[in-house]
Design a protein around this nucleic acid. Structure first.
Lengths: 259, 259
DNA sequence: GCCTCAAATTGGTTGAACCAGTCCGAACCT
DNA sequence: AGGTTCGGACTGGTTCAACCAATTTGAGGC
């Protein structure tokens, strides 16, 4: 086990730093599934801390379904590709060593975002209240202005805000709770890699149509407008990223990719 | 704070029991957002344990975004309706005191399941490998047989298995990780309340069509078949549950329901 | 009335000891 | 020789008693 010591960020506490260090080492396939971690006592010594603090880090790994901790038996690394949850997407996209898998995961995340949007706009068109509509109108106006002035930074920021408002308008705990995890990843991704936010000339039309459908309680219209628009976006994204995808696949055959 | 002591399940450790107790008390609106919990020392005394063990429970609440813990400031209850994540869906459906909100959340969960399915079948139709197809064929055969013999128990069990296999066939970390959390809730819900699993006479046709579309790499066909079938299911579910929904709304106006 | 600073309160970290499952191997019996 | 038993050497789980560090509070000074 020749690790480097984790940097302890100013805002983080010690347990969190250790968690992040182990998380990285798992997500970049450094610690392989099935491997047993050293005992809590050894790990605590390695990170120059005590068992209690170290155990907090282990609890976090366990909660994220990255390790299995069993009394008397130790800590075993799980196969995160099978067992993890969405909260690992952000760290994974930052750590992954397989470019092809990374790009594919990224595209899938954008696809999941659209699924969340479809669900939200459908529900919003049934349940939105006047104050929801007002908030949506405000944000749509903002985006229309951002689009005209081509303010990339603002477009991205308000994109996340708009999705959030749509989820709120859906008045669905399920949608809200899915969005909380998914949008945190999405926000981090898109603000790091701004070129991932692409648009189509029909963007203003789409926003206006969506707003109309929601305020007129037309779920089918809202959903179909969303599907149509994001189908275009997907095509752009695919042509944008497919070269990277192929390049990665050649240079790094990676996991379960062998055909 | 007059709580009852939590039952310590045989399989659970102490920290988990405390977590579950506090979780319940939050999800049933017993502990209201903004409230400050007693200090770790007091809580530990109340649960007749020590600070370290109690802190493990707090870490779990924090991880689930149900409380905010800040050094020197204490532990504050968050508004779980805004901040929680999908993993709280299961406990919430068991604890919620507002029947209308409960039924609505339940319907939304089933809707989210369909969104997950749409995404998975679309990807599966692009990425499924021979062994995925084989596994799907096996499960489809099983379901066809279960449907003929009207084996409700098996239908429900293999329904979850089939969804799982579709997610696997999608070869998408994003889909897999979303499914891990969502299906855990879904499995628990549907096995507790078996009447929630409804079918349509076209079930066998749908399964066969889906399988054909996936093996012939026809994403659009797979998605549209899924949409069509589950639209029927949704109608049945809605007529099944809407009376409960209305009854709940009348007897318990509940939160943010006032119009 | 406002500012300052120290005390009280909170969570964060530490180390040691002990309890409780699990595993493995030596000793034992057959 | 083979199988069984049991004890010791792991593992994580719990407890205790301090101390460190961030925040809040309020008494005192200006």
């Amino acid at each position: 086990m020749g690790h480097s010591m984790p940097e302890r960020n100013k805002n983080d506490n010690l347990a969190l730093s250790i968690y992040e260090d182990l998380l990285k080492r798992i997500l970049c396939d450094d610690l392989k599934p099935g491997t047993r971690l050293p005992s809590e006592r050894e790990l605590a010594a390695h990170y120059q801390t005590n068992r209690n603090t170290l155990r907090e880090a282990l609890r976090k790994l366990e909660h994220a379904h990255l390790v299995s901790v069993r009394h008397g038996q130790g800590v075993t690394i799980l196969d995160f590709r099978k067992t993890a949850t969405v909260e690992c997407l952000g760290p994974f996209l930052m750590q992954a060593r397989n470019p092809s898998e990374q790009i594919r995961t990224l595209l899938d995340l954008l696809m999941a975002r659209v699924q969340l949007l479809e669900m939200s706009v459908a529900l919003a068109a049934q349940r939105a209240k006047p104050e929801d509509i007002e908030q949506l109108e405000r944000l749509v106006e903002l985006q229309l202005h951002n689009f005209e002035t081509d303010d990339r930074e603002a477009l991205i920021h308000d994109d996340v805000e708009l999705i959030n408002a749509l989820v709120d308008a859906a008045h669905s705990l399920t949608a809200r709770w899915i969005a909380n995890t998914l949008l945190e990843v999405y926000r981090g991704l898109i603000s790091r890699t701004q070129s991932l936010w692409v648009s189509d000339p029909s963007f203003p039309d789409y926003l206006r149509c969506l707003l109309r459908c929601i305020s007129e309680n037309d779920p089918e219209g809202a959903v179909s407008a969303t599907r149509t628009y994001y189908a275009k976006i997907d095509r752009v994204l695919l042509t944008l990223l497919s070269p990277l995808l192929e390049a990665g696949r050649k240079s790094n055959p990676g996991h379960s990719e062998a055909v």
